[in-house]
Design a protein around this nucleic acid. Structure first.
Lengths: 342, 342
DNA sequence: TCAACAATTCAAAACGTTTTGAATAATTTA
DNA sequence: TAAATTATTCAAAACGTTTTGAATTGTTGA
């Protein structure tokens, strides 16, 4: 591998000049620059990243950690995002270090990468309330971007999130507008920030529609077909069964749909279904029978903003200026209809 | 962050001695070593990885590349392995760089990481015949381990693979022993090495059982429920429908099972099903109705051997000594029964 | 007591860059 | 033509380790 010195020796220049020439510094003579560039190409020169890192103090790496505990359910969406992230970081000539954690301490893998000085920053997925990881990274001053916003009020870190309150409100408002009054909500895991926000949105539209005690219509759980199935079972065996389901993911909606079919109930005639659609491949809303009404905001769409935010953060931007909340669009398909007369 | 120099200054030693003390060299005085170690702990010293890399010429990183083209199907198993890999590499104090490729050239992302001197080696998943990535890495002398063996005969690179020929042979032999003579095989994508081997195993047992022209019973495709469903449809609408299905994955088996249910066919009374089980979470063989007979070899099990092989490779071992073929075990459950009398 | 040897430690070089401060060459101004 | 600028280049230091070869100290044997 050719080094700066090799080029310098070849042209009778100093490494300093060669370095400047290749990095486009203005003070280097045009002719010299030309010669250096052609020599670099001829010798197939590639700057040694490690050396650059040593002097710059940056690693050029971004850490992404997956907690491989029980909720394997997160995997699908997690990887969807991680994959896209890797692509967009590559555009900034950064790379993604991927680490899977098995320990009980959620902070441990972050600590490990920090202490190895392996990364310049982290992207945190699936934040919870009072997230220990966020606290740790803030304490040591390590840059990070959160996918999803953990707290309710204003925060001082960078994040990209969708407006979960509005999404849930829009979805359940559609149902109340159609006359539904008994709406079951299969929400995400209770400790997740997005689940808290969606609950809030659901409550808001319930209040608007004069529905009492919305909380008794909410079930928290992992977003899987199994959860959807058992949730449908539970709600529909109540004395006052729901006429509609709101699901936090198309995966849960799949379970609900399966349960309805198995029990001779028709969607949308007997029961309407609305889901939030992350646009993950394994449960496409449009391929449901009937096609599913959703609030849609593809997970994929988060990748580029997250990577961009990280880039700006590492260029010294203020985290408070890097807070993006995007909104989900409501797409009405065939799984929703007026509430049946009772 | 404390450096070697800081410790040296603190104790009135040279950085060289401190370095040796911390790296357990024998020539350093026991008392000195003790003092150095306690000082290191007190100052919370962590060696700077980048500096170590510069001098050692190693990056401590292993590259894993996902080709994000059409066959999204690979994702599930890919991530299963990648996750485990990250864990086991961490045990060697190595990290995993994860890169997603979108270009048409399968070699491009490897080249990119190589030219940045970002990694010490690669782990290649889903090899195909005459894989260009393997050719490239061999040409430039970059260490790599292949998950799955690409060629038929002996090869000179390190790999971990399961014995696909035997797995397919065992599975189809089970069916022929039960009297089945019309066995449909929903195999993997035709360019994949494992699909070629399984075809071979299938052919072997067909020949043993006196079944003619086995190839007309094979369909190649992505291992998805959709493929299973359409494959079942195609085969069962033939004039001589199969009495059994052999699937390359439980995902395809799911599609077959769905098709049977939808069309009033019973498994195992009308049709038997055997699948190869990678033990991925989204399609558990044991949760099928009825529980699925499989040849089982969990994807997860590949992670540790792959990481170990990589470790040895980087320690200078000969790739030819690092070739592991493990065998899948046949687990008979309730989805297989004697062929129906015709 | 002196040489021979082993046990420790050290200074300096190396890895390949970037950056600093100074030096040289080229050009302009007076 | 000398002085003052400006444009260009350079040598050396820096980043934080590891490794090399030499130097120092301590110990043993004669």
């Amino acid at each position: 591998m050719a080094t700066l010195k090799d080029i310098a020796a070849e042209l009778g220049l100093s490494p300093a000049t060669v370095s400047r020439a290749l990095n486009g510094f203005p003070e280097v003579n045009a002719r010299t620059k030309e010669k250096v560039e052609s020599a670099a190409k001829r010798l197939n020169y590639r700057p040694n990243k490690t050396a650059q890192r040593l002097v710059s103090g940056k690693s050029g790496m971004i850490g992404v950690v997956l907690m491989a505990d029980k909720n394997r359910t997160a995997d699908q969406t997690f990887f969807e995002v991680t994959g896209g992230l890797s692509r967009h970081l590559a555009e900034q000539d950064r790379d993604l270090i991927f680490q899977v954690d098995i320990s009980d301490d959620p902070v441990a893998p972050y600590k490990r990468l920090v202490e190895k000085s392996a990364v310049d920053g982290f992207i945190i997925q699936g934040p919870s309330r009072n997230d220990a990881r966020i606290a740790y990274l803030q304490e040591i001053g390590m840059p990070f971007v959160v996918h999803g916003k953990a707290e309710v009020g204003p925060v001082d870190y960078a994040f990209y999130d969708i407006d979960n309150i509005s999404a849930a409100r829009d979805a359940s408002r559609l149902l109340t507008d159609l006359g539904h009054r008994r709406i079951a909500f299969l929400n995400g895991l209770q400790d997740r920030a997005f689940a808290r926000d969606r609950r809030r949105g659901f409550q808001q539209s319930c209040i608007e529609a004069g529905i009492e005690n919305p909380d008794k219509w909410i079930l928290f759980g992992p977003q899987t077909p199994q959860f959807g199935y058992s949730g449908a079972e539970e709600f529909l065996s109540r004395s006052e069964p729901p006429t509609a389901f709101l699901c936090a993911s198309t995966l849960a909606a799949q379970g609900v749909s399966d349960y309805l079919k198995k029990n001779g109930l028709s969607c949308p005639t007997d029961v309407s279904i609305v889901a939030h659609d992350d646009a993950i491949v394994t449960a496409r809303a449009i391929e449901f029978d009937p096609p599913l009404t959703v609030t849609r905001s593809p997970m994929r769409d988060a990748c580029k903003p997250l990577a961009d935010i990280m880039g700006q953060l590492l260029n010294g931007a203020n985290p408070k200026d890097l807070q993006i909340t995007s909104s989900a669009e409501l797409i009405v398909r065939s799984s929703t209809r007026s509430a049946p007369l009772i």
